[in-house]
Design a protein around this nucleic acid. Structure first.
Lengths: 338, 338
DNA sequence: TTGTAGGCGTTATCAC
DNA sequence: GTGATAACGCCTACAA
């Protein structure tokens, strides 16, 4: 005999406790408005029935889900892991849940995910970077969905955001590299199209290069997706040049770790034969050998502040702001003077 | 002047198109039941209004969400990334969306996340491993939520699952290590309590050790959470023994990469002074130096099959099965004969 | 092929 | 402090 499973509802609890559904709802959401007696009576019923509120019904009736959505470009590597972790922790403290999805660095997919999350009733959104179709911003505005952008910071764009200046940060590192005597720099950049962070980082190197009076045409650049394998391949290609670079600056740590790994395959010593730099300072950066010189990003701080701003916006306790965080250069063994 | 944003509903579309809500609903869900004429008329209205169906309302009315939930122990490192990726891809092909959350290796948190996902209307669940409170299984059964367990396979437990035999797999590797002449083995295991995969892997080493006639008391074991730092610390501790091990076998690649990294700090050559092995064969394993000898797990295959079984269960097209996948040993530079 | 209407499980606004 | 009752936005018999 097969009994189709009956999932207990508010009604069931109300019946079992001998009160109305309204009262049960109060017991669950605003205990203080209910007499201790009935409260305990109701809670007993809840327990014994194994009742769990239906999220969808609740969201629909209350017109808010206490859920916020985040869309990150990738979950494959740890680039966003620490920041997102902090984001989520802070959200939980504030009584919000997090829904994450990944756009695989595809603007169209991101737009779709945004609609999906909004359709699911997300009270607010966390997005990475600025660059996306204006239609997306329109959509968000029309629907009145509070949104915070992270991992970048461009104060004049008028969006709420918390991040850092990718361009200026990378320039800092490039300046350092040049000061250390490097004159033959090669770059492995992430794909810049549709990715303002990658574009900014590349531009930062170019800024520094030109400011030191060098010719842009003499700065080899390979653009490739953020994956270890690609970093390795690009490195191999760059090292085939007649004038080999003395340093390879990479758009992030993942690319850089691929480069280092390939250097070993090619029997090249890092930093003896060629220096390598990264960006992000993810966990990996400390554990590759030689350890990576990179730009340290305050991941956790960024995640925490993003959560606070977003909740502030949702609960209309604060206005849109753009917070620019400080980064720092972390000198490790992979970069040496010349 | 501030206009509170009006979000278009089925009603709005119906009005705009001059049809009933039922017809609009059909246009969205079962096009074939609608005349081409009205279809195009309706779709136009949908477009121009920028209508997106409300997920919560839909799920509630249809009593299914086309969403499946997955709870993995951690997102911090890439252990589950590839498998989950394949899981999601397959799910999308079948018209299902994936909701992921992480339990931080805490059974209580996992139980909570399960309730959360079920409350959100998940049609089915993917869980990692077998070991959890019986009450959880009861809950799932009572609610009739199809569930598939992955990353482990214990046919006699009577749960739908797709994975591999952690114990037998690790034993394979341990046999190999011993065959290669190692007689002083030390182990860095994950926390075994509440984690059948970690426990199985440790047991596999012990099986092999005893089968070769050695004493369990002479097999040093440190249990520590799956993080690089912990692998490093445990390695340092193990190498302080009077009788230094000739090989350190680690519960997974993350632990192993920490061990290798620490070896370098201690000026120990791997595998010259001491060999190191891992488990999982995640991306990292190829890129650490020296590259890791490890147990290759068919991540993508596992994810794909898990998705297919789960959808099969949900749509009642198939019965619970437990699929046991083959693993293989990948020999790389971190392990050498003695 | 299309429309009508009831119901999904909550919350929230009223009275009482 | 508690109880009716009307939303919330959609799906789905059922009827036309």
């Amino acid at each position: 005999m097969h009994v189709s499973p009956h999932i207990p509802t508010l009604d069931d609890v109300a019946n079992a406790a001998g009160v109305s559904t309204a009262t049960v709802s109060r017991c669950l959401n605003e205990k203080q408005k209910v007499s201790p007696k009935t409260l305990s009576k109701v809670m007993e019923a809840v327990e014994s029935l194994g009742y769990t509120p239906n999220f969808n019904a609740r969201a629909m009736a209350a017109k808010q889900s206490h859920t916020i959505g985040a869309i990150i470009p990738t979950m494959e590597n740890a680039i966003f892991a620490r920041g997102l972790q902090a984001f989520q922790e802070t959200l939980l403290e504030q009584g919000y849940n997090l829904l994450v999805s990944s756009s695989a660095y595809q603007p169209k997919l991101e737009a779709q995910q945004i609609r999906e999350l909004v359709a699911r009733g997300a009270d607010g959104l966390l997005l990475i970077g600025y660059e996306r179709d204006e239609a997306v911003y329109d959509y968000l505005a029309r629907r009145g969905i509070p949104t915070v952008l992270a991992w970048a910071s461009m104060p004049d764009k008028g969006h709420a955001s918390v991040g850092f200046d990718n361009r200026a940060s990378m320039r800092l590192l490039a300046d350092r590299v040049i000061e250390m005597g490097h004159r033959r720099i090669a770059v492995i950049s992430g794909i810049t199209e549709g990715n303002d962070r990658a574009a900014g980082r590349l531009a930062g190197i170019q800024d520094s290069w030109q400011a030191h009076g060098f010719d842009l045409a003499a700065l080899p650049v390979i653009e490739t997706p953020y994956e270890t394998e690609n970093g390795a391949a690009a490195f191999a290609e760059l090292m085939q040049a007649d004038e080999k670079p003395t340093v390879v600056m990479c758009g992030n740590d993942v690319l850089a770790s691929g480069a280092i790994s390939k250097a070993r395959d090619l029997d090249l010593d890092v930093p003896g034969d060629v220096s390598v730099t990264g960006f992000d300072d993810i966990e990996l950066a400390k554990h590759v050998f030689p350890a990576l010189t990179t730009v340290h990003v305050p991941h956790r701080q960024m995640g925490r502040i993003a959560a606070q701003s977003l909740v502030g916006l949702i609960e209309k306790r604060s206005e849109k702001v753009t917070r620019q965080l400080d980064v720092s250069i972390v000198m490790r063994a992979s970069l040496t003077s010349i």
